[in-house]
Design a protein around this nucleic acid. Structure first.
Lengths: 205, 205, 205, 205
DNA sequence: GATGAATGAGCATTCATTCAT
DNA sequence: AATGAATGAATGCTCATTCAT
């Protein structure tokens, strides 16, 4: 399940099982601290302390701070790749979209916090940009795909501009996360979802 | 006799015209550097260098780095408060909304970069949170107001959930900025605007 | 009364009456701040602020911080030179000695604080050392003088080692100030004075 | 599993023998520099340089300058606690008192310099005040104790006011140190000791 | 005389990283 | 594998002093 976990270069992946545990503990610690204080306040010493190891041990597993951050990026990536739900109708997909945001926000809001911190970094870090870009493309394509299905199945309006609608949906979800996770302001996810349904289905008025 | 003659050091406003110019130059420099590298890489020395003054001069105008950042926040605030357009119809308002984003993104994308960096900070800094929160409320109210007008004037659909629609619009705009400014990925602002019109007016299909 | 107050070099003495007032205000401010926080925490800006003038004004009157401190030294010097009491008997002199300490400690303990701060400085600053040394010699001579008188008048013990006794008295007074001003611990000045009398007079036991 | 494995940084005691040596070297360096220039001129960089280590190394052992100073205080404390001489007669104790001052002044005058610098600090620093206060109490009690013994053994005058005499002795010793260490002026320690003997014993005259 | 503005040199402290063991 | 020790290069901030007005 985890990405590249079988090579043998020290500083990249661990040799032993215990080493892999240490690595994960360090990534988890970094992840937690970014969620708490953002990249701005991320300190390698804090990460090591939180993982219960010496600062030199951290550098045994991750040559540089940047390497550690990259591992965090991969962790977020895999965490958000759990959209592997069974196939549903386009309308169900739409509902699942908002339900997923709601659930993730309730269960692990930190993921979003880290994700958005990464967005700020993407501007300057090509590696992070590429990864976020890929995630974005995947997400956008997925939405466009089921929106197109919905139009084809006459479940959604015939004159729907699918790419534009997908862009709106994706942007709305990102915007809602911003509102919920960073501003801690209310966002009527359910009413927004309902309004989206009316809009896409073009229900009579 | 010499009551108010403390040791100088301008707190909010400079004493002389030239002082005010220097102040603004420092804020501009900080603003530029945040736009370039985010808060994470903001260094007082870099700000001073960019403004062409000694580091001690920076501290003559701003006691702490935090004070300087607050001044940047105020600058962003006032920069985004230029929505003082002449009254228009709800539909025109909607179009202006997207046009504004497009123009701002073209002319001063840095404003958005700084604005979103501030969002990350808002989570931990109450002062910034309060300011962004206020800006958010103002924006949301404005949108809700003209959406309601549109419904009343039968320009928009009667069954429109105005608060939900406003939330979607605001979130979409925020999400589009994220896409454009940080991911530097295309976002079909005009097609999105057109789709929004169709959605709000409920034009036949 | 004041030392060299008629020359005309700016930075040494003021030209006008108002200038002299300003000078004194600055010296007083420095004196107060040394008494409060010691030389270690003395800041020219604080002195200027306390005197209600600009930091540049302070430097108009005193070219350097050191110059200002020297003026404070002179102030302490003149303050402690008020032993100009009418001639008394040796025993009265002894009593006055302790009474003076008691009074000064009650009325202006700051003088002692500044005086002892100066002692620390004397080790490295020849100017201050010279001044304190002179004060010391004067004090010691004065004590020796009336102790010798006392012996001659058979008021004090015949076998009294006058220089040693004077050294003890001077040291005791310095030590008592240390105890009272810096340690803020009780010191039985009156009982000590009484014991001294018994010792010097050699009263039967 | 790895409970006590925090990020290192010795708080009170170093982990390794070599670490303890470094710690002591830093305290010694600070001690020397305070003796030379007082607290006012104490710079962490100078301390590090004198100990032959990097400034960051100093902060590895002592989190703050204040922590370093506290360690110096403890060093002075233990240095002056070597009064563990074998029991003697009251008169011998008295003679030892002055002999100790003489020896300390000859061998390690810096101890006194640092001790008196600490007195200046005691006024503002409660921790230092407490430590000096304790040392003072111990010293005073010790003197009172053997003076009382001397009176009881009829070695000293019957009408001696023991607390007052002890206060005089302690103050004299402090005053003599001031004279010797800071003013570098002669102080007739032996004649003073002899006069003290005459005074306490009340030897005929 | 007085002040606002400006600065060079410096200060305690931080931080990612390295290295011998 | 792991750690205590060590460090170069900053980093935000301070302070006595200068200078044009």
């Amino acid at each position: 399940m985890r990405a590249s976990a079988t090579t043998s270069a020290p500083g990249r992946t661990a040799h032993t099982a215990h080493g892999e545990v240490q690595r994960k503990a360090l990534v988890q610690a970094a992840y937690d601290l970014i969620a708490q204080g953002g990249f701005e306040h991320l300190r390698t010493r804090s990460v090591a302390a939180r993982a219960g190891v010496n600062i030199a041990t951290l550098h045994y597993y991750f040559a540089t701070k940047e390497d550690l951050i990259r591992a965090v990026v991969e962790r977020v990536h895999s965490e958000l790749a759990n959209f592997s739900a069974p196939p549903r109708t386009p309308l169900e997909e739409l509902r699942v979209e908002f339900a997923d945001v709601e659930r993730q926000m309730r269960e692990t809001p930190a993921t979003f916090v880290v994700l958005f911190e990464l967005h700020m970094r993407a501007m300057r870090d090509p590696v992070i940009h590429a990864m976020l870009s890929e995630m974005d493309t995947t997400f956008q394509s997925h939405v466009e795909s089921y929106l197109a299905d919905g139009v084809q199945q006459s479940m959604f309006r015939a004159n729907l501009d699918v790419p534009a609608a997908a862009a709106i949906l994706v942007a709305t979800i990102k915007g809602s996360i911003l509102q919920l996770a960073f501003m801690r302001r209310p966002f009527p996810l359910d009413r927004v979802a309902a309004e989206f349904e009316r809009w896409l289905t073009g229900e009579p008025h």
